[in-house]
Design a binder for these strands. Sequence first.
DNA 1: ATGGTAGTTCAACTA
Length: 256
Amino acid sequence: MFKIATWNVNSLRVRLPHVLDWLDAERPDVLALQETKLQDRDFPLDAFRQRFYHALHAGQKTYNGVAILSRLPISLIADSFPGFDDPQRRVLHAQAGAIQVLNIYVPNGSEVGSERFEYKLRWLGHLRRYTAGLIAAGAGFAVVGDFNIAPAPEDVHDPATWEGRVLFSMPEREAFSGLLQQGLVDCFRIFPQAPGGYTWWDYRAAAFRRNLGLRIDHILASPALADRCRSCRIDTGPRGLERPSDHAPVMAEFET
DNA sequence: ATGGTAGTTCAACTA
């Protein structure tokens, strides 16, 4: 089995102990990280090397930053979408063993109708064009990361309240379903899941304790890869630790 | 339409 995981760590500097403990416990073949908030020179490469992980990082000071850790040697395919010159580091596409991983940190969008929201939709348009190219090329790949989109009412603790708000608005959900229409498969929904499966909980108002969350972190598989998916689950464990990220890791296993 | 918390950086911004 080949295990792929994704985790928005909201500062790798602060979360490194959690990430290392989790790596030791789960030993995923690939772990995609978002919001490292580090420049490349501050990336803790040695800590990962000691655990026999190769790593790539597209870093940025203060905001964003994406990384891929891999037990097999990893090679960079792209760290941006062609024709979209974006100073924000949100994309890392790499070959890890036999499969390609496209790690994304989709813009949050701030508020529906805002400048940042338009940037989010524009960004999602470039993503869609990029994945269309990968599918046309017949690549076996996974698109993983923080999509900042809850695709359906089952992915939202209170859909009525969230209706029309950023992370759950129709334009965002349509962008997500556009990816599924291309043939990408939401691995979490391949399998029966207990209700209330979320990946993000606001730090405020004891949201995690009350499970007031959203499922906005996803693992999408290309058609051929999806046929080999054998499990997908959210690990809420790290969200309950001291000084947690506001996101939980998601992982999927694929027949090799 | 605001508040609640967290991270980075140092008053304010992003999430």
